[in-house]
Design a protein around this nucleic acid. Structure first.
Lengths: 204, 204
DNA sequence: TACGGCCGATCTGTGTGCAATACTTCATCG
DNA sequence: CGATGAAGTATTGCACACAGATCGGCCGTA
């Protein structure tokens, strides 16, 4: 059993609140109130806030505590291509052996997506699996750090439009490219996959 | 005047100590001792340590505090290409207008390098300028976060071998490629520049 | 001698307290 | 009427205190 620290739990909880809009953008975080609400003291809470500020989900305003990072549609235009390129890089740095075992596993998730109702979660799992075999832990850390920022825009703008079918099709194309050992092609498709998701965002 | 918080100062100080080897790899950090030594209390010190752990320079061991991240030559093999690709990406995301003004400024730094004695610092400035015009703040944040990790290997292995001339020549080539509007060429040269630096590392 | 459990010292993780700074309110002035 | 400033409140940033976990040494046993 891994030992969990309070800081970690708080980071998860606060991240969830920022992502689903309970903590709207630009909100100032009141440390005492939030600490009481969560039933902890200010010390571990502040530690969590600092971690979140390092990841960019909050911003630290010296002397004034922490704010939820501003919500800027233009930021999404920066984040989507960034994550796309990072994932493509992760793919490039996955050993051929690992790469060979990926397509089948990826398509299995695609199959589940068809059934599942919880689209975004399944989509996340697909992308997480795609990069999971990369042997550059620092790159993976950067990806993990950046995705939550992006997710905020996803949940905010996701109007329930049916991108499911389209996304699954794109995923299958990527898996097919991987099967054909066409890494550049897979990377290009991957970037396109992200960019198209961004297009849906802006449209709504 | 910008307000500086204590944890910021502490992060700088501790980073410096890790980079120059005063805090060797795998060292356990004793919070009370270090706090006394630095003349602060444990609270802001811990906040700094958490920030450093988020950036990967330290690792948090729940129940046992913080350790200096292990020193693994193989890690350098992951970090150099990573920073190289991130910088190349930053270049791709610099507007053509800004890009046009870069080569001259870059070569000015190259000129200074020839005179300067402090090679690594001048090299840093060159790379910092190269990416500074990129309009993706999140990518820049990732680069800033990753470079210190790499710098540790640089200072550790830098035996004073004269890579100066070689590096300056490579930098000028990159500037020339930019002047010729050859972005892919510049990116490729940039990646090569980092990879060659890595080669010097491993050799010593 | 090697091994394992116990016990005290040490240290981390968290809670609490305090001073300085930022914010709010409201009255005064231009 | 808007701007300005002062007093009072609220909140942060840092210091300190305490409980529980961890580490190292000691002893007993095989």
């Amino acid at each position: 059993m891994v030992k969990r620290l309070m800081r970690g739990e708080l980071i998860e909880e606060i991240t969830a609140r920022v992502l689903d809009g309970r903590f709207p953008a630009d909100t100032r975080i009141n440390e005492v109130r939030l600490a009481n609400e969560l039933g902890v003291s200010r010390t571990p809470l502040r530690e969590a806030l600092i971690g979140l500020a390092d990841r960019g989900l909050l911003v630290a305003a010296p002397g004034r505590g922490f704010l939820v990072a501003p919500f800027d549609p233009q930021e999404a235009r920066r984040l989507y291509p960034l994550v796309a390129e990072l994932e493509a890089l992760a793919l490039r740095w996955t050993s051929p052996l690992e790469l060979a075992s990926l397509p089948d596993a990826l398509d299995r998730i695609s199959d589940e997506i068809a059934d599942s109702c919880d689209l975004p979660a399944a989509d996340d799992r697909w992308h997480a699996l795609l990069t999971s075999r990369c042997d550059n832990p620092h790159l993976l850390r950067l990806i993990e750090q950046t995705k939550p920022l992006l997710k905020r825009y996803e949940t905010a703008y996701f109007g329930g439009r049916d991108r499911a079918a389209e996304s699954v099709a794109e995923h299958r194309e990527i898996a097919a490219a991987l099967r054909a050992d066409d890494l550049p092609g897979a990377s290009a498709l991957l970037v396109r996959n992200w960019v198209k998701a961004l297009a849906y965002l802006k449209g709504s």
